[in-house]
Structure formats: C-alpha cells, structure tokens
Design a protein around this nucleic acid. Structure first.
Lengths: 121, 121
DNA sequence: TCACATAGGGATAAATTTTTCCCCTATTGC
DNA sequence: GCAATAGGGGAAAAATTTATCCCTATGTGA
C-alpha cells in the first residue's frame, strides 16, 4: 500500500471530515450503501466509471475509518455486504446536503464546469 | 496549465458539486473568504500549510467556477480582494454542515484517522 | 469443458494534484 | 542602489490517487 510522506492537517472540523470523505468515489459509495446497494457487484454497477479495484480500496478506507462495516459470508461464490455503521449514518444528512446543492444548481454548475474545460472561452 | 485527459462525470448533484469543491484547499478558501479574509496574504496566513502558489491556482478555479470574484485595485503595492458571489454564498451552509460534522465528531475522527496512519495497529 | 458470476489482490503505469524553486512587476523609504 | 511590500507565474519535481493488467478460487449452466 502507498505510504504517506506528509502528515495530514487535523486542525479543524473541515480538515477532519476531509480526511475521511476525500476520495473520488467515497461519497457515492456511502450514498449507495445507504440506499441499500450493499454488495460490491451492485456498487460497481451503480458506479460503472470506477474500476472494481478502486472501489475496493476506497471501501477499505471507509471501513478503516469506521464509516462502514464489511460482512463476509462463508459461501461460494463469495458474498460480501457492506453496511453503514451508526457513525457512518450520521454522515448521510451531510452528503444529502451536498447532493441537494448540486442538484439545485445543476444547470449552472454544468455550464461553468464545461466552460472551464474548453480552453477557448 | 495542466490539461485533463479524462472527462469528469457530471451525472448527478454529487458529481457536480465535487467538480467545484474538490481540491485540497478550496473549501477552506471559501470559508475564510466568507469570514472576511479577502486578501491573498490574509488567506495565506489563515492557511499556512498551503503555498501561495496553490492558493492562487485554487482561487483561480473557484473564480472560473463563479463561486468567487476577484477585484484588483490599481495601486502600488498591488491590492487584491476576493469575495463570494451570490452563487458562492449559497454554498456556505453546506460547508458549514461539513465543518460541524467534523467538529462534532472531532475526537473519534482524530482517533480513526491516526489509527489508520500507523501501520502497526 | 468453457464461459460466467462473485470477490479479491499484486505490480505497475498513468493521471492528477500539490510543492518547490526561482523569477518578475512597480513604488516607497533609506 | 537595495530592501521591503503585495501579488503573480512558469517549469519541473514530488506526492498522491486512479487505472490497467493479470491472476487466484468455486459452483452453475450451456
């Protein structure tokens, strides 16, 4: 695994929450798990742009940060289910707030994001 | 400037907000600007762990995403002031929600983050 | 027997972000 | 002339995050 060379800042609440939700797919993972898509393959179908590999890695981090738990059923073919911990559940309203803001400003956001992507204004 | 090789996903609200606030210092920049620290040198003092360079880069992106505006006063030595746009102001409650969650769970977060950082459990 | 579904992991490459280093503008004050 | 002030920016390096490729295992259905 990659080993950090610089320590994170943990000064304020924003630093702290950043440490656990900063990651390209983490918020979506939490969101979909909360919606009931608990198995890895389901999550992958909900987030087709991410590879299985990254999802596993980010799921593991979420688990280490105690936002989700992983339950492995000793069956073949393997079955795994992720669930939010109580701690993780407290994050849902916050994620919801993020998503709502994004939804409410969808058109404008799409516009400014795309404008910036195209070098020729 | 770096030119993206892969297009971002812009499917849902979470994708969209991610595009504009994902960046190591962006949320803090918005927060401090909102608190009245509008000049670059003030922001740098509030965020000493970031270099002036990154702050400039991220401020520029925030500006291009229309969350802040930059006012340059034609004086010597130069004077610059950033302000939130109306659009940017609507993001403040969301940032506030993030920060509050972080503050409310400070101890636990600090603990799980540090635990994960130290390879030997 | 072969393909598929499930879940996972190592090694390595590529993409992206952040940092470092060094330089530039112009004026005021010594 | 030189330093200090206030704000910037290019190039390249370092750090970090994501993606790609290939491999493990077992049971089911064609």
């Amino acid at each position: 695994m990659y080993e950090r060379k610089t320590l994170p800042n943990l000064n304020c609440g924003l630093d702290l929450i950043g440490e656990v939700i900063y990651g390209k797919w983490k918020i979506r993972l939490l969101w979909f798990i909360n919606e009931g898509h608990q198995r890895p393959s389901q999550l992958q179908r909900k987030i087709p742009d991410a590879t299985r590999r990254v999802l596993n890695i980010q799921l593991k981090e979420l688990e280490e940060h105690e936002l989700i738990t992983k339950k492995i059923y000793p069956v073949v073919p393997p079955k795994v289910e992720y669930s939010l911990t109580e701690f993780g559940q407290t994050l849902i309203p916050v994620i919801s707030a993020l998503g709502n803001w994004g939804d409410q400003n969808e058109e404008r956001l799409r516009s400014v994001i795309i404008k910036r992507l195209q070098p020729d204004g």
